[in-house]
Amino acid sequence: MVTDFSVSILAAGSTTLLLAICSIVLATVIGLAGAFAKLSENKILKRTASVYTFVIRGIPDLVWMLLLFYSLPSFLNQTADALGWDIHFEFPPIGAAIATLGLIFGAYMTETFRTALLNIPRGQIEAALAYGLPRTRIFLRIILPQLTRLALPGFTNNWLVLAKATALASLIGLHDVMFRAKGAAEATSMPFTFFLVAAGFYLSLTLCSMVGLSMVAKRTSAGERELAR
């Protein structure tokens, strides 16, 4: 019985991983846009990005998740009713969870990428401009390779926190590792055993990520170490 339930808990790992990967991709895209907005000359963009990071980081993850899963559809439905439209909004838990984690970690990524961008020597971009490189090529050839290296420690940190934050999605009904563990705990009289299985899953996810990302770090900073010798 313990084995059956454990297998079912660990099988939900694919849902947890799917949620974590979709969220980190969304967060990276938002983070890049946010970092460029914060560093841009445009005052409105700058102000919007600052308000975004402040509001996101001022409210707990769980409250954000409840806001996006319960409050937002309710607000949209009320508005639609008031306008006399015949539509009903309801988000699936996985969608609401990806949107929430993407938005939250987008704010943390914005800060990570902003610091990394500031650490790329200005002269390199000026040189590229002087050579007449178009903006997209400057981004792909000059900024992106260095951004990857400089932002990697912060990215790793954000990923580790995000991977654990996915457990909150069980509270809005997503059938992830945590949800199955709670189900198994309630069905048997062994809550400790099954929450421990869940804990083991998250711990191994953390450890694997740490090993994997440190290998990436070694690779991206290969040139740096050569120079530092």
């Binding site: 654990k164 945590m178 705990a185 809550p191 400790f192 953390t206």
Partner: peptide, 20 residues
């Protein structure tokens, strides 16, 4: 152990789990 697992899991382990 405490930084590698979600706080929610730790809370449930202690609140629901110890009764086992």
């Amino acid at each position: 152990l405490f930084r590698g697992t979600p706080l929610l899991v730790q809370l449930f382990l202690i609140y629901f789990g110890l009764a086992q």
